[in-house]
């Protein structure tokens, strides 16, 4: 991971900023200068938010050495406000996962650049907290 790459994408990664095409109306992640669907450059940044659901998941045991601390990594195909993306699911053990379950975004560490390097944070998703008072926005 390059320091500059994470830095220039920090809003993208911390706040799940994607792209909305004014021409074809589609929204997708990540940020892009042109629409990946129709090629239009009439695009704007769009925060990907809204109700999130788990469409599919994988429990990844074979990970890079760097990710061994977090293994098994749970990878999720998530739909957020109608936009699909592949991201990590956290705060869940494999037995708690269910296709269709409600999720919510959190900020977590995704990778660490060695013993003395940088910590890379980004949005992941966790099973939505149930119970009273949970203020989804």
């Amino acid at each position: 991971m390059s320091i500059a790459r994470h830095w220039r994408r920090r809003h993208n990664l911390y706040r799940l900023i994607g792209t909305r095409c004014r021409s074809c109306g589609r929204t997708f992640y990540p940020q892009a200068q042109r629409c990946i669907y129709c090629g239009s450059s009439d695009v704007e940044q769009a925060r990907i938010d809204g109700e999130a659901r788990l469409l599919s998941y994988s429990i990844v045991y074979s990970v890079t050495d760097e990710a061994r601390y977090e293994a098994p990594v749970i990878l999720g195909l998530v739909e957020v406000g109608g936009v699909k993306l592949i991201t990590e699911i956290t705060d869940a053990s494999p037995g708690e996962l269910e296709v269709g379950m409600r999720l919510e975004p959190v900020l977590r560490k995704v990778s660490i650049h060695g013993e003395s390097g940088l910590i890379y944070y980004a949005v992941k998703f966790r099973p939505a907290m149930g119970g009273g008072g949970s203020g989804e926005d």
């Binding site: 993208n12 992640y29 990540p30 940020q31 990844v60 045991y61 977090e70 990878l75 990590e88 995704v110």
Partner: peptide
Amino acid sequence: EGEGFYNIG
């Protein structure tokens, strides 16, 4: 810049 940012193995 998409899923490859995460620990996809």
